[in-house]
Design a protein around this nucleic acid. Structure first.
Length: 281
DNA sequence: AGCACTTCCTGATAGC
DNA sequence: TGCTATCAGGAAGTGC
């Protein structure tokens, strides 16, 4: 599922291909994905050039000539495909098609239709999409170790759902949450208030490491994720925890366990990631 | 505030 | 082979 590294991988190839391109035609086959109605998209997007593409957490932000913004969120199975020479004409589950002034097409493919688009004035779209509520990016200048520790102190409860909470930190999903907790040797059901400073510090560095590695490997492809050229990422070959239930821990050899935390499948090593009841420091 | 549960959606997989 | 049930999960909504 697309998390920060997958969305960033898409952003990089899209920005290269779409910068200064004008959208000349829009064809939407699944209107429910387009918040505010299809006509709002035609009105704000037709004959506009794309100036820049930013990313905030798992959201992409397309900045347009008319100072409006187009925002997309892939949720579970969404992604864009750059249809340069008709090579993706036969792809299934295309929910929208944006024709560009150089003859290329930007396709939005999404099996489960969970993805969402917003368009309009920047302030309104940032609010409606939920982008304003996002927490820091893992690589934000302002998210120093000290700031991360301070943010953790504001919360109580189980650590894994907090990592998945986009208001706490933006961009982490189920894959990178399991990976970061494994690297930091923290049990996914540990309570934040029971973690000591050493563990919290390890978690900070683990988050940066797994996200950086995910981007470097152009994303994790499990199921359907591909980049805008329909190419798979390679980070699935480097995962140490996610979906490795009943497999040997790559650090200690113990059998990895699969449990459910926050309604999500969660894999951890019972030997490396012990559940502590109370902080020792 | 935290946490569980439900909803959306459809391909993949398991069981018979 | 073919049917049916279950699972996967990001994020919003509901309710305690």
């Amino acid at each position: 599922m697309p998390e920060l590294p997958e969305v960033e991988t898409q952003r990089r190839s899209l920005e290269k291909a779409l910068q200064k391109r004008k959208i000349t035609e829009i064809n939407i086959s699944t209107p429910k994905i387009f918040m505010g109605g299809v006509s709002k998209f035609s009105k704000n997007l037709l004959n506009q050039r794309i100036l820049k593409i930013d990313r905030k957490g798992k959201f992409l932000i397309f900045r347009l000539e008319n100072e409006k913004i187009l925002v997309s969120h892939f949720r579970m199975t969404g992604h864009f495909l750059l249809n340069k020479k008709g090579e993706f004409d036969e792809q299934k589950y295309i929910r929208a098609r944006f024709v560009l002034d150089n003859g290329w097409e930007l396709l939005y493919q999404d099996i489960r239709k969970f993805g969402r688009f917003w368009i309009g004035e920047e302030d309104a779209v940032l609010r409606e999409s939920g982008i304003v509520q996002l927490g820091n990016e893992p690589f934000a200048q302002s998210l120093t170790l000290e700031k991360f520790l301070e943010n953790l102190k504001k919360h109580k409860g189980i650590i894994k759902p907090l990592l998945l909470n986009q208001k706490f930190i933006a961009g982490i999903g189920n894959i990178y949450a399991d990976e970061a907790l494994f690297l930091a040797k923290i049990h996914p059901k540990s309570r934040v208030e029971n973690l000591n400073k050493k563990e919290k510090t390890a978690l900070y560095h683990a988050i940066l490491k797994v996200i950086e590695q995910g981007i470097r490997n152009r994303g994790t492809t499990i199921g359907e994720y591909v980049d805008a050229e329909n190419k798979q990422g390679s980070n699935q070959n480097h995962l140490m925890a996610y979906r490795r239930g009943n497999k040997p821990c790559l650090v200690c050899g113990a059998t990895m366990r699969r449990i459910v935390v926050a309604q999500r499948g969660t894999t951890f090593c019972p030997k490396c990631q012990k559940l502590k009841k109370r902080s020792l420091t």
